[in-house]
Design a protein around this nucleic acid. Structure first.
Length: 772
RNA sequence: GGGCCCGUAGUCGAAUGGUUAAGACGUCUGCCUUACACGCAGAAGAGUCGCGGUUCGAAUCCGCGCGGGCCCACCA
């Protein structure tokens, strides 16, 4: 007997049991079943799942469960993306500043706590990952593999060290991440400086950073700007330096005079242009924010703001300033101290993405993209990339870059892995000096771009043979340019030459019910843990399935989740009815038309759902199940057979059909609602529903379908009559006339199902009609 | 500014170029019928953003316009 109501207690019971019995374990020794592996995204360990996680991880879980039932040996590990700036911020807030090693230890402790919480939520949602293969990017084992992958790329010439500008806080003397910057509107001055062409003609350039003039490398104009087209290719700065004059489409014709000077480095756009035209890098600001190597002795040693005033003064005295105008503009400041940041050239590590770009694109084309337009995000990105991937970060909680560097500029890979600079062995450079272990850590995408290798046991060749490439990479559409791209590049092109996954499945995001992005500041965030207080996991999972097409964003819908919960209730109560009526698994000799009708509908539904599952169209699958079970089975078939069940009238066929429909529906629902289906499935005494095979859609009896639909229509018309006449559906009618071609069997059904004493049939080929 | 996605009842959303454009929520009417009132039966409500085109036929394909969203870049 089923408990009176379905509840979360039932879900928790099964979650514990599944874990205990290892129901979802990947079978290492199975030689027969094909392997289906899933490269699940390792979520960043923030400590709480958000609705986007719930949506996407539900999708992954549907796939895993479906494939298991289809007979695959499913390999479904789950990892954690642990390292990064947000954790550093939170740990520093809690413990203050600590020495690096102690700080990292605290970060690890913190992260372990976060993982514990998130894992609990995943379990509560019924995700069927195999936790024996859990990985964490902060583990020494993981570090080792990331480092090995970088050394291999280094040896192939794909990883190198070069100068690159980073955001720098002159006050804190530290490199900053983008996330540490705030935009602040400040008062400034725009000055128009007089440049000269080779014939002595004067051309004005508007700038808010005249102090950068000594580092001016080029002047740019828009290719369609008539004023500068015929000017030649050199211009002379007010300081007398000759610089190239270049046409570039990114210049705004309307701004100032339509000319812009490129300096090392006034702003981010200078960096773009420097790479595009291979301009020189001339550093004139040092780590303390003071001017150096400007070639203008009045500026040397001054702070940036002082230098700005000074050079205006200087240029005015040389009559090179034509106009000045006060303005307000936005500048980037360090979020913690408010100091204006500078872009400073510094030594960074790069991964070459320009040289292998073609191969990356070609490999992306060998992967199946679902939906197919997803690949355009990657192609556009590769084609638009202006420079190589900067893989180093000046942070603490990250994978150390496994290299040594020397004053002389030489670099060398580490020999012992995992490599930690504090404990690194000494190493001598070719030049004779002692090399320094690199102290920067990796960009987080360096960690996560080898997950297919990690789960496939790389570099163990035996395991790789078995598990690489992975079958499926599910991920968010918004990280195609990062995670998908970097994975195809590193795991695929650079390290194995084989596409890292066969199929990539892209999911969209969850918006707030108001259609806007969920954000704390808008106060429209819905948290999974709050939701779990009001709705069972199986309702939340159905909501995910109902959330529309892949790669599309959708607002969160309380209506859907409400409906999903109501459906669980329906399933529960219908099951109680079937159980009370009596389970019958042997097919009786005779089935009535209605029995054959519902079994045909069932088989059609199985086919429809199977096709949708193969295409990852979960909303179609769940919709087909809902429609069949609620509308056809509960609303009609159950009503059709009640008299047979209660009055023991040709009961066997009814019991068989009821049992068959319930059993098969449970199987179809199992990937979506694993808990409730498991609980009900126990009546069959065959163990876990999740160990069963996916049902096969058998033959549809066209004649029975036709008759069944006709009966449905007649019943509906009689119900309509009763409703219009304010009668209860249980009310007995004396007589009705059915116009249409129905047989004696259907006539008898109408009498019983609609409680009509006398049914008269008038044969007619026209439209069905019922008169009273 | 570049790329991509989208525009369907009050709301959210389905519809290989082919009957009367699913379904859910909400609304209205009736029904406590021995699975379920977390329910049942019934009803009303759109002709698919606008304009043009292709077609025997367009929500669906093409063009333009209008309006959203996402990602990226930028404000010298």
């Amino acid at each position: 007997m089923l408990p009176k109501r379905y509840s979360r207690e039932i879900e928790i019971k099964w979650q514990d049991k599944w874990e205990e019995e290892g129901v979802y374990d990947f079978d290492e020794n199975d030689e027969k079943r094909p392997i289906y592996s899933i490269d699940t995204p390792p979520p960043f360990t923030s400590g709480e799942l958000h609705m986007g996680h719930v949506l996407s991880y539900s999708f992954f879980d549907f796939v895993a469960r479906y494939k298991r039932m289809k007979g695959f040996n499913v390999y479904y590990p789950q990892g954690w993306d642990t390292q990064g700036f947000p954790t550093e911020v939170r740990v520093e807030k809690k413990y203050g500043r600590l020495p690096p090693e102690e700080f990292r230890k605290k970060c690890v402790e913190w992260t372990e706590e976060m993982i514990k919480r998130m894992k609990r939520q995943m379990k509560e949602l019924g995700f069927s990952a195999d936790w024996r293969y859990e990985y964490r990017t902060m583990d020494p084992e993981y570090h080792k593999k990331v480092q090995l992958s970088l050394i291999k790329m280094y040896k192939k010439g794909l990883v190198y060290r070069d100068k690159y500008p980073v955001y720098w806080c002159p006050r804190c003397r530290s490199a900053l991440a983008k996330a540490e910057l705030d935009d602040v509107v400040k008062k400034g001055v725009m000055v128009w400086l007089a440049f000269e062409d080779e014939k002595g003609g004067e051309h004005l350039i508007a700038t808010t950073r005249p102090e950068m003039l000594p580092a001016c490398q080029a002047v740019l104009y828009h290719p369609e700007d008539e004023r500068y087209k015929a000017l030649g290719d050199v211009l002379i700065t007010p300081l007398g330096k000759k610089v190239p004059l270049i046409a570039d489409k990114d210049v705004d014709k309307e701004f100032g005079s339509g000319l812009v000077m490129v300096c090392t480095f006034g702003d981010k756009m200078d960096v773009v242009w420097m790479h595009r035209y291979a301009l020189a890098m001339e550093q004139i600001i040092d780590e303390r924010g003071r001017m150096v190597n400007t070639g203008v002795k009045e500026l040397e040693g001054l702070k940036v703001e002082e230098a700005r005033e000074k050079i205006i003064e200087l240029l005015e005295s040389r009559q090179k300033v034509r106009k000045k105008k006060a303005l307000e503009h936005s500048v980037k400041v360090h979020d913690r101290c408010g100091t204006v940041v500078e872009l400073l050239p510094s030594m960074q590590w790069f991964a070459d993405i320009k040289t292998p770009a073609k191969e990356i694109k070609a490999m992306a084309h060998r992967i199946q993209w679902v939906p197919d337009f997803g690949i355009t995000y990657l192609i556009d990105w590769v084609e638009g990339a202006e420079w190589d991937w900067v893989i180093s970060r000046q942070r603490l909680f990250g994978t150390p870059l496994p290299f040594y560097v020397c004053e002389c500029g030489e670099t060398a890979p580490a020999e012992e892995l995992p490599f930690y600079p504090e404990k690194a062995a000494k190493k001598q450079c070719k030049c004779g000096k002692e090399m320094e272990p690199e102290r920067s850590v990796c960009d987080c995408w360096v960690d996560s771009s080898i997950t297919p290798l990690i789960i496939a046991g790389w570099p163990d060749e035996e395991r790789m043979k078995k598990l690489y490439p992975v079958s499926l990479r599910p991920q968010g559409v918004e990280i195609v340019r990062t995670w998908a791209f970097y994975t195809i590049y590193r795991s695929g092109v650079a390290l194995t030459g084989i596409p890292p996954f066969e199929t990539i499945l892209l999911n969209g995001n969850v918006l707030a019910p108001d259609g806007k992005k969920m954000s704390k500041s808008l106060g429209n965030v819905i948290s999974p843990s709050e939701l779990l207080k009001d709705y069972p996991a199986d309702a939340i999972r159905q909501w995910a399935a109902m959330s529309g097409a892949m790669a599309k964003d959708r607002p969160f819908s309380y209506e859907d989740i409400h409906y999903a919960k109501a459906f669980l209730n329906k399933l529960w109560n219908a099951s109680k009815f079937v159980i009370n009526a009596g389970i019958r698994q042997e097919k009786p000799a005779r089935l009535k038309t209605v029995d054959r009708w519902i079994l045909s509908k069932l088989n059609a539904t199985i086919k429809e759902v199977s096709e949708a599952m193969e295409r990852y169209e979960f909303h179609k699958a769940i919709h087909a199940i809902h429609r069949f079970f609620w509308n056809d089975f509960c609303d009609y078939y159950l009503e059709y057979v009640k008299y047979r069940v209660y009055e023991n009238n040709e009961k066997e066929g009814a019991l068989y059909a009821l049992t068959e429909v319930l059993e098969k529906t449970l199987l179809l629902l199992a990937p979506f609602t694993p808990h409730i289906t498991e609980e009900i499935y126990q009546i069959f005494g065959r163990g876990s529903v999740h160990k069963q095979r996916w049902p096969f859609g058998e033959k549809v009896d066209e004649e029975a379908v036709k008759k069944g639909e006709m009966l449905k229509e007649i019943v509906s018309k009689i119900r309509q009559y009763k409703s219009n006449n304010r009668l209860s559906q249980g009310a007995e009618l004396e007589r009705c006339v059915v116009k249409g071609s129905i047989d004696e069997e259907l006539k008898e059904e109408i009498k019983h199902v609609c409680r009509v004493k006398e049914v008269v049939v008038e044969r007619s080929e026209g439209e069905l009609a019922v008169e009273f």
